[in-house]
Design a protein around this nucleic acid. Structure first.
Lengths: 340, 340
DNA sequence: ATGAAAGCGCTAACAA
DNA sequence: TTGTTAGCGCTTTCAT
């Protein structure tokens, strides 16, 4: 038999379709003998229930969809893998969707919810928080992973992230501690994504606390890619008269692009310019020199995202914003400018 | 209205459900006026067809599933993204599934085909070719992406990959050209994955052609991770008496791990030990020094994989094994030992 | 504990 | 060109 249906199974097991349905759904009200008989037939014919029919009937599907925007880096890679594996342990089914940088992530979520009857959504990357009007219309729980939903006051949206401001501040604080005074910030478009702006504010705050005014010229805007970070840093080295002794990069990928630009200009990391990155991807530990970074607890972020989402799906919990701690990894990419 | 169905739309548009169905499926036999009217109502109510119902009815689903085993690297990341975006351009729907290193990828495919009625499968990573018996039972077209299915003689299985043997050989040839004689090979478990074995054979062949016998001691086994490659290389530097002047790593990730181990032992790349990697991920261009590598045409692999699969889904094509060319990227990680 | 039967939302004959 | 209708495979009342 090619693809047996529940009907066929019921025929061969000499029971009704409802009984077979009860067996495959582990209902308690089935005679043990009957259950065994049905199970045997299912096994014999290699029967697999048709998820489409099941979901059609049940209206909802226990699909959790994960919408990923911009997965150019291992940081997201790690998180996605972990999210998937955590979801699989439950009765839910992960559906990973990579969307283009130019696509609207909330629209994508909508589509999946309508089309596939997804029961929950995890957003990874992008800036769904800027699409509140559309987001509000989503009638299943959502979790922003690595991005804050604080202040959004949407009760279907929760978040698991770090304190971007504090994390960025700790990085700059460290640079100041090491005697740096002219610190460049390599980041994305401000306002564009919340976390980017917060990191920027953290950088400013650290400057203020150290009694140093941040020179706007030392902000280098770049996309979160190797090449764009390279380009940005290369340009300032070649053409700008604002000199700096350290760079705070808003991602490790950018930090690596920056480092390469420095090397290619015949300079050294950290002797000429120190660098600290952000995220804590594995590649930083294997770079030459080992890159300092602010490590996000990616495993924990993934785990909490899934837990929180499932909680929200199963009970009517209120929206929560979980903030996790970061860890400063010192590496060998920062020079101490203080006479010891 | 919460979630309008085709019925509701038909009611409000004052047409029958079949007409609505015709409109949403772009059938030609609909009066343009009627079509516009229906479209307007669909838009007004924000109607989205229920994919479950559609697939249930159609038995098949136009879902293409992509089974990814071990996505620890950007190489796969790039390919997945491209495969997704190519599939989206068609009428098919990508369903990405990451599976654990210990899970059986063919079983996973089976599940998706049965449960979701997937119409095609792309395998990325893992070693499905070792599971021919189970693979044979799959009744939808499959494509191995980056892995060869040559010699499998399963007519539902095609592949898009590079010539691993030739590619590895070209890397080692280049090392010989640069005057290296004692070349270490850093690779995975032989026999485990076809492509790994082929790369090994390519390495041997190059040695033979250059009249040099490959010293088995110079084969370092490692998983395809930074840390394991690091461990393997660190060990040989510290404890082995077999010295080498160059390493051929079977992946760029391994090459980076190897490089770091060399640096941490106070040696230099390329002055003490030269390195060439494999895959051609972006990180190699941004490493310090720029790493030599054998670049796989990842975009083309992704594109051809999708094209081939769809061809096989739509017409009854015979199984094909497409082999694409690689490019040797020279980088700065290889020292020339020849007196010039 | 089990069965009969009514749909879930959609497509695809077939009829008009 | 449009409408009517019979299922697709399953779950879930409601009887028994």
């Amino acid at each position: 038999m090619a693809k047996p249906t529940i009907k066929e199974i019921s025929k061969y097991a000499r029971v009704s379709v409802s009984t077979v349905s009860r067996v495959i759904n582990n209902m308690p009200d089935v005679n043990e003998e009957t259950r065994q008989k049905v199970l045997a037939v299912i096994d014999e014919f290699g029967y697999v229930p048709n998820a489409n029919a099941k979901n059609l009937k049940q209206i909802s599907s226990n699909i959790i969809c994960i919408i990923v925007k911009g997965m150019h880096n291992q940081f997201f890679g790690q998180i996605i893998e972990k999210i998937q594996s955590e979801i699989i342990k439950t009765k839910y089914i992960p559906l990973v969707n990579f969307i283009d940088e130019n696509d609207n992530e909330v629209d994508a979520a909508f589509r999946l919810i309508s089309e596939r009857k997804a029961v929950g959504v995890i957003f990874l990357g992008g800036s769904p928080s800027l699409k509140t009007d559309r987001l509000m219309e989503i009638d299943v729980p959502c979790v922003f992973s690595t991005m804050s939903a604080d202040g959004l006051s949407l009760n279907n949206v929760s978040s698991v992230c770090i304190d971007d401001k504090a994390a960025a501040k700790s990085a700059i604080d460290y640079l100041f501690e090491m005697g740096h005074k002219r610190i460049a910030v390599l980041g994305g478009q401000l306002m564009d994504r919340d976390s980017i702006y917060k990191r920027y504010v953290g950088a400013l705050e650290s400057h203020r606390e150290h009694g140093i005014e941040f020179n706007e010229e030392l902000f280098m805007q770049s996309k979160f890619t190797f090449e764009d970070a390279y380009r940005a840093v290369d340009k300032t080295i070649k053409y700008c008269n604002s000199r700096y002794t350290a760079i705070f990069a808003m991602s490790d990928i950018m930090a690596i692009g920056a480092a390469k630009a420095i090397f290619d200009n015949g300079l050294s990391v950290p002797d000429d310019i120190s660098i600290i990155g952000f995220d804590g991807i594995q590649a930083t530990s294997y770079y030459n020199p080992t890159l300092a970074t602010v490590k996000q607890p990616s495993g924990e972020i993934a785990l909490k995202s899934v837990e929180l989402l499932i909680q929200n799906i199963e009970s009517d919990m209120v929206s929560q914003n979980i903030v996790l701690g970061t860890e400063l990894i010192k590496g060998n990419s920062i020079n101490c400018l203080l006479a010891v």
